[in-house]
Amino acid sequence: MDITKAVTATEERVPRRRGRRRGGKWYLHVALSLICAVSCAPVVYAILVATQNNAQMINFDLTFGDSFLANLDTVWNDRDLGGFMVNSAIMAIIISVGKAATGLLAGLAFVYFRFPGRWIVFFFVLITLMMPTEISILALFEVTHDFGISGTMAGLTIPFLASATAAFLFRQHFANLPANLSEAAQLDGANPIQFLTRVLIPLSWNVLGALLVIEFLYGWNMYLWPLLTVNDRSDQVVQVGLASLQQSGQGQLYGPLMLGALIASIPPILVFLALQRPFMKGFAMARDK
């Protein structure tokens, strides 16, 4: 089904509907406000706890406490969350940009070239959709170890620089573009790379945005692989590094733990909110078949 057409159709319909039914939907607003309150509650509570010390927290004070700066000192200076976050940021950016780049090149090859064995290559890539990395993560550790990159930034990122998702997202998008684009480009004497950078990429911002959001979140939120491979504390990423704020049993400081969790969530939430629109549009287009 054609989701993009449906989306534009809905957008055209909305003003008429609004005019007809404005107001009188108070129960919907009540229900939705309640649902939003429940869904935001864990993070709102985390924000409150992040400013409190243990005594205030155990009293179940639902107000801002006065220990925010002390908690920040523990998180930022004591446990060096900033260092973990820098590693996470580098890893997430390399992975998302790398995947977009390899995906663009693969999409270009699949759509604008006819070469022998093309369908074998196509299946070779397609089948990896059924092969989650986590299945062979123990062996992947051995492989990166043999290459001597285990635990380094190269070891954290290189295995994830290409994916079937990226290749097919762009293949699908390019295949839906009019064929005369590349004919015109060829008449103008543009080589494939010029065609990609000057014609295709400007036409792909939504898909590119969607992929960058997904892969940035994927990279930033990656947990198991750094947990298994990174030995050096200074090379660790924030998702694993947060464990240094958690204690089992007595002596848990809740304020710093919540503050750390919140700070570590700021970059992915900002990226998601900033690119929410292209994310939705890009996904609607990718699924448009």
Partner: peptide, 19 residues
């Protein structure tokens, strides 16, 4: 154009699965 994608899938996805 396909070398980056194919190399990474072969070395870091297919090979570990066999392994």
């Amino acid at each position: 154009l396909l070398v980056p994608t194919l190399t990474i899938l072969a070395v870091f996805l297919y090979w570990p699965l066999v392994e």
